[in-house]
């Protein structure tokens, strides 16, 4: 395990540590990402290993002194029999920030992945800057690829896109059996993907509501008892 400023990886050795998986906290050691930052994190989960990687604080994307936006690339590989739960705290896109986030996962045949993303359009009362966030999950072939762009007011407000909601949540679940049928409520859904895996989506005006909606959606997943 190797950290590099500003991404610090802190293994959890407390008494709450569960024997069946390793828990690592992802700590941002400085203010990041700022404009001009280019952050990369690679996670390899070996055969039969189980890792939970958790954030401890929101990621706040800010404009920097240097021109150009900021980028954060997270690449994960999960080997046979392994599992990864990637649970960062929300990403807040502040005014004038230009941030690009990419999460790419490559899964072995029976590897398991749970990956959550919550995007917040600006701090309270603030118009968001620009963010493009891409989720990509492959198992041999593609399971999910989705890029969400925020920061164009005419698109953010469109009933087809974010419908004026400030917070978007998504949670990919490739965890054993998939839900047989989609489950939906007006502002969240849990849907089986075409070629394996499932996706929970939620829209709301605050991150707490989105978190609850994703929790509710996940209750409908056949593997929900294992999280």
């Amino acid at each position: 395990m190797r950290s590099a400023v500003p991404l610090k990886l802190v293994p959890h050795r407390g008494r709450l540590r569960r024997a069946d998986h390793a828990l690592v906290h992802l700590v941002s050691a400085t203010t990041a990402p700022l404009g001009g930052d280019d952050l990369a994190l690679t996670v390899r989960v070996g055969p039969g290993a189980h890792l939970v990687l958790r954030g401890v604080a929101a990621t706040v994307a800010l404009p920097g002194h240097r021109p150009g936006g900021s980028r954060a690339l997270v690449r994960v590989e999960v080997a046979e029999g392994g599992s990864l739960q990637y649970l960062p705290e929300p990403t807040v896109v502040t005014a004038r920030a230009r941030h690009e986030a990419v999460f790419e996962a490559e899964l072995a045949g029976d590897a398991r992945l749970r990956a959550r993303e919550v995007l917040v359009l600006g701090r309270v009362g603030e118009r968001p800057g620009h963010l493009v966030s891409t989720l990509s999950v492959r198992r041999g072939g593609p399971l999910l690829r989705q890029s969400v762009s925020v920061g164009a007011p005419e698109v953010d407000s469109s009933p087809a896109c974010l419908a004026g909601r400030r917070v978007l949540g998504a949670e990919v679940l490739c965890w054993g059996h998939d839900p047989a049928e989609p489950v939906s409520r007006p502002w969240w859904s849990l849907v089986p993907l075409a070629r394996g895996g499932s996706l929970a989506t939620a829209l709301a005006d605050d991150a707490v509501t989105v978190g609850h909606a994703l929790d509710q959606a996940r209750q409908h997943h056949p593997g929900s008892g294992e999280f």
């Binding site: 891409t134 990509s136 690829r145 989705q146 890029s147 969400v148 762009s149 469109s158 009933p159 087809a160 896109c161 974010l162 419908a163 909601r165 978007l168 998504a170 989609p182 939906s184 409520r185 007006p186 502002w187 969240w188 859904s189 849907v191 989506t201 829209l203």
Partner: peptide, 14 residues
């Protein structure tokens, strides 16, 4: 490209 439209997805499922 893979532009997503979260609200359209929710509307379609509903």
């Amino acid at each position: 490209p893979a532009p997503g439209s979260p609200a359209l997805d929710l509307l379609a499922e509903a």
